[in-house]
Measured scan of single mutants.
Amino acid sequence: VSFKITLTSDPRLPYKVLSVPESTPFTAVLKFAAEEFKVPAATSAIITNDGIGINPAQTAGNVFLKHGSELRII
Protein backbone atom coordinates (compact mmCIF):
# COMPACT_ATOMS: atom_id res chain seq x y z
CA VAL A 1 0.00 0.00 0.00
CA SER A 2 1.13 3.57 -0.60
CA PHE A 3 0.61 6.56 1.66
CA LYS A 4 1.10 10.24 0.84
CA ILE A 5 2.16 11.73 4.18
CA THR A 6 2.25 15.53 4.55
CA LEU A 7 4.26 17.34 7.23
CA THR A 8 1.80 19.86 8.69
CA SER A 9 4.30 21.71 10.90
CA ASP A 10 6.14 23.09 7.83
CA PRO A 11 4.36 26.00 6.09
CA ARG A 12 5.51 24.62 2.70
CA LEU A 13 3.62 21.35 3.46
CA PRO A 14 6.25 18.95 2.12
CA TYR A 15 5.10 15.38 1.57
CA LYS A 16 6.58 11.96 1.00
CA VAL A 17 5.01 8.94 -0.66
CA LEU A 18 5.78 5.72 1.20
CA SER A 19 5.02 2.26 -0.16
CA VAL A 20 4.97 -0.64 2.29
CA PRO A 21 3.58 -4.19 2.38
CA GLU A 22 0.01 -4.42 3.73
CA SER A 23 1.19 -6.45 6.73
CA THR A 24 3.63 -3.76 7.94
CA PRO A 25 2.87 -2.57 11.50
CA PHE A 26 1.69 1.05 11.29
CA THR A 27 4.09 1.95 14.12
CA ALA A 28 6.93 1.25 11.65
CA VAL A 29 5.31 3.54 9.06
CA LEU A 30 5.04 6.32 11.67
CA LYS A 31 8.66 5.86 12.77
CA PHE A 32 9.98 5.83 9.20
CA ALA A 33 7.92 8.88 8.17
CA ALA A 34 9.14 10.80 11.23
CA GLU A 35 12.76 9.93 10.38
CA GLU A 36 12.25 11.02 6.76
CA PHE A 37 10.96 14.42 7.91
CA LYS A 38 13.61 14.64 10.67
CA VAL A 39 11.03 15.01 13.44
CA PRO A 40 11.02 12.96 16.69
CA ALA A 41 8.94 9.80 16.23
CA ALA A 42 8.15 9.58 19.96
CA THR A 43 6.19 12.85 19.88
CA SER A 44 4.70 12.49 16.40
CA ALA A 45 1.30 11.21 15.36
CA ILE A 46 -0.32 10.47 12.03
CA ILE A 47 -3.79 11.86 11.41
CA THR A 48 -6.26 11.91 8.53
CA ASN A 49 -6.89 15.05 6.46
CA ASP A 50 -10.05 15.46 8.58
CA GLY A 51 -7.92 15.63 11.74
CA ILE A 52 -8.84 12.17 13.05
CA GLY A 53 -6.03 10.44 14.93
CA ILE A 54 -4.94 7.00 13.76
CA ASN A 55 -4.14 4.26 16.26
CA PRO A 56 -0.71 2.94 15.21
CA ALA A 57 -1.37 -0.50 16.75
CA GLN A 58 -2.66 -1.97 13.47
CA THR A 59 -1.32 -2.94 10.08
CA ALA A 60 -0.66 -0.54 7.22
CA GLY A 61 -3.28 -2.43 5.19
CA ASN A 62 -5.97 -1.75 7.82
CA VAL A 63 -5.09 1.95 7.96
CA PHE A 64 -5.23 2.16 4.17
CA LEU A 65 -8.65 0.49 4.05
CA LYS A 66 -10.09 2.65 6.85
CA HIS A 67 -8.52 6.03 6.06
CA GLY A 68 -7.20 5.97 2.48
CA SER A 69 -3.77 7.03 1.27
CA GLU A 70 -3.61 10.74 2.17
CA LEU A 71 -2.39 11.27 5.73
CA ARG A 72 -0.67 13.97 7.79
CA ILE A 73 2.10 13.76 10.36
CA ILE A 74 1.97 16.16 13.31
Rank of each mutant, 00 (worst) to 15 (best):
I46A: 11
T8Q: 12
L7F: 13
V29F: 08
S19M: 09
P14K: 08
F37D: 02
L65D: 12
V17M: 15
N49K: 14
S19W: 02
F64T: 03
S2C: 09
S19V: 13
L30N: 14
V29Y: 01
P40M: 04
A28E: 11
P25H: 13
A28T: 11
A34V: 14
L18P: 01
G53F: 08
L7G: 12
H67G: 02
A41W: 04
S2R: 08
I74K: 15
A45V: 08
D10Y: 04
N62C: 09
V29R: 00
S9R: 06
L71R: 01
V39Y: 12
I73R: 00
N49H: 08
F37T: 01
I54S: 02
V39W: 04
R72I: 04
T8S: 14
A57C: 09
N62G: 12
T8A: 04
E70R: 07
V29W: 01
Y15C: 09
I73A: 01
G53W: 09
T48A: 15
G53K: 15
V17C: 03
I54N: 01
S19A: 13
G51A: 02
I46H: 02
D10Q: 07
F64Q: 08
T43P: 01
I52V: 14
I74N: 14
K38V: 07
P14L: 08
Q58H: 12
F64W: 08
A33P: 00
D50T: 08
E70G: 12
E36F: 10
G61E: 09
K38T: 07
T59H: 07
T48M: 03
K38C: 11
D10S: 07
T27S: 06
T24I: 13
I46T: 02
T24N: 10
H67S: 10
T8P: 14
K38G: 12
A33G: 01
L71S: 01
V39D: 02
I73N: 01
H67T: 05
S69V: 10
I46L: 13
V1H: 00
S23L: 12
A57S: 13
G53S: 14
S2H: 05
T48D: 14
V39M: 14
L13P: 04
A57G: 08
A34E: 09
K16N: 06
S69A: 11
G61I: 11
A33S: 10
T27N: 05
F64E: 04
A41Y: 06
I73C: 03
E35Y: 08
